[in-house]
């Protein structure tokens, strides 16, 4: 019982979230979707209580909560929406929220490039395909029949519970050792000092430049040059493969 008392705060939002996802799954039967929405809201609020920041940096806290809640809610709506077009749009929203989180994590370049790559390329292509394949635009029968939603949700949330529990345990161990320090009102929190990269051969960076293009570029094209080359090769091969796999015009397009 001690264990459940200690972790009740963790279990309740998980159960609620699981119920919400399960309830909101597309189904042939008509359900009051508001019930699922309420459960999800409750779960997120309870989780939010868990996430109270130690310091009183409200601007950053609020921003974090907004982005995190947007990402999670959009993700939930994305996997439960019966219309794939809407799902893709929800995914775009998830991407934007995640980019916000990137900004909070002192990664402005990443956030910009993610928006460009995902919102600008991937989601558009996905939407293209969806629209080509489902020109009627309405949800098809298979979009309304998820595969074993209960089993998948329960399994997924057990995994999430395990992850959160792990985090909690770890947080007790050295959760206090976060070296971050944010000036009040500063949008991007910066570390006090930079831990040297054991692999890096570049001179130590200025802590204030973390997340800047200079540091990132030096690491990327200095320490990880070969990886970059390999990644480029992978891209090339993927391009060739995509061209090879994609249907020929002689076979007729979609």
């Amino acid at each position: 019982m001690d264990w459940s008392k200690e972790n009740g705060l963790l279990i309740i939002p998980l159960v609620l979230g699981c119920f919400a996802v399960c309830w909101l799954m597309p189904s042939t039967r008509q359900r009051p979707r508001i019930l699922g929405g309420l459960a999800a809201l409750a779960a997120i609020l309870m989780m939010q209580a868990m996430l109270l920041p130690p310091a009183g940096d409200y601007v950053r806290s609020v921003l974090f909560f907004v982005f995190a809640a947007a990402a999670v809610i959009s993700a939930g709506l994305m996997i439960t929406d019966r219309n794939p077009v809407y799902a893709a749009l929800w995914f775009a929203l998830v991407t934007l929220a995640v980019c916000g989180l990137f900004l909070l994590n002192a990664a402005p370049f990443l956030s910009a490039s993610t928006i460009i790559v995902y919102a600008g390329a991937i989601i558009v292509t996905f939407l293209f395909v969806i629209m080509l394949a489902q020109q009627s635009g309405t949800a098809t029968s298979y979009d309304q029949q998820p595969i074993q939603p209960l089993m998948a949700s329960v399994g997924g949330f057990i995994l999430l519970g395990a992850l959160l529990f792990t985090l909690q345990e770890w947080g007790h161990i050295d959760g206090t050792s976060t070296s971050e320090h944010a000036e009040p009102g500063q949008f991007i929190a910066l570390p006090k000092e930079i831990e040297p990269n054991p692999l890096s051969q570049a001179p130590h960076d200025n802590p204030h430049e973390i997340g800047s293009l200079r540091v990132l570029g030096r690491s990327l094209f200095g320490d990880y040059l070969f990886s970059v080359e390999i990644a480029g090769t992978v891209l090339l091969i993927a391009t060739i493969g995509a061209i090879a796999i994609a249907p020929r015009r002689s076979q007729g397009t979609l």
């Binding site: 996802v21 989780m47 868990m50 996430l51 109270l52 920041p53 130690p54 974090f64 995190a68 990402a71 999670v72 993700a75 939930g76 994305m78 996997i79 998830v94 995640v98 989180l101 994590n105 997924g156 949330f157 995994l159 999430l160 992850l163 959160l164 985090l167 770890w170 947080g171 959760g175 206090t176 976060t178 971050e180 929190a189």
Partner: peptide, 17 residues
């Protein structure tokens, strides 16, 4: 929870979803 932990919780949630 620390900032790091809250970030990790969000990541885990997105992953599970």
């Amino acid at each position: 929870a620390t900032v790091l932990e809250s970030q990790l919780i969000v990541g885990a949630t997105l992953f599970i979803l």
